[in-house]
Amino acid sequence: MDAFLGVGLPARLFATPGIGNLLGAVRTDGMIRATPGSAFTREAGIPGRLVGDVRGMTYQNLTGTKRASTAYLPERPLPARLTALGLPSLVLFGGTHKRWPPSCVDEYRPVPGCRVEVLPGIGHTPMYEDPATTGPLLHDFAPGNGGG
């Protein structure tokens, strides 16, 4: 978590008590699409289903999810969790990630059985930003297709 670069202004405002409650009550689909903006490096369409799922969550559920993930990550680093599983792993890391510096990917390289792919020009959400690259990587990694 020490390397975390942060999130954009809409997400910070939404997490602010009072202001966030108000934003939650009046948020539009456009606001929901803008909130994860710091996750994207490329222009990427956020599917309507994802917007609908977020719209269906209460303010308390959304902020509680954020608090839970913020508490989860420092408990035990993700590379240590992967090592303990002892399973083949695939880490797709955006080379122009806005939330984590590119050097973070090096923490996954020592994990046994872990394949690390750095995707140039991609941010936090490769499946939305470049599905044409991400899809084949996931397909090839899946059991029965030569991976996993």
Rank of each mutant, 00 (worst) to 15 (best):
P102Y: 02
M1Q: 10
P79S: 13
T16G: 02
T70C: 09
F93Y: 10
P47E: 04
R55W: 00
G6W: 09
V118W: 00
T70I: 10
Q60C: 05
N21I: 00
G148W: 02
N21G: 09
M31F: 11
T58E: 07
V26C: 03
G64E: 06
Y108R: 02
R33G: 01
F14A: 13
M31A: 08
G48P: 05
R42W: 01
D53M: 13
L82N: 10
V26P: 04
G135T: 14
G45H: 04
I46V: 15
L85T: 08
V116Q: 03
D53G: 08
A132P: 01
L87Q: 12
V116Y: 03
F40V: 12
I19T: 11
T63I: 15
F4I: 02
A39K: 05
G52M: 04
G146H: 04
I122P: 02
E43G: 10
A15D: 10
L62T: 10
D140P: 04
T83V: 07
I122E: 00
T83P: 07
G37T: 00
A25W: 01
G8N: 09
T125I: 11
P74T: 09
R42K: 11
V26S: 04
A80S: 12
M31V: 01
S103E: 14
T65Y: 06
L92Q: 05
M57N: 13
T125L: 15
A25R: 15
R49K: 13
P10M: 09
L87S: 12
A132E: 09
R99Y: 00
L5G: 04
V118H: 01
G135W: 10
G30S: 11
R42F: 01
P101L: 07
P136G: 11
M1F: 03
R27W: 09
S89P: 05
R12T: 10
P10C: 07
F141V: 08
P143V: 07
A25I: 01
K98Y: 01
R42V: 01
R12P: 00
G52I: 03
R115V: 08
A25P: 00
M1E: 06
P112T: 07
A84P: 07
P136S: 12
A3F: 03
D106A: 14
G24Y: 06
P77H: 06
G95D: 04
K98G: 12
E117Q: 15
A142Y: 08
Y59N: 02
Q60N: 13
L62Y: 13
L73H: 11
G56R: 14
P77M: 05
A11G: 01
I46M: 14
L82R: 14
N21W: 09
R49V: 04
L138H: 10
A39Y: 13
V26Y: 10
T16P: 06
E43A: 13
F141L: 08
L90R: 11
F14S: 02
P112C: 13
L9Q: 11
R99N: 14
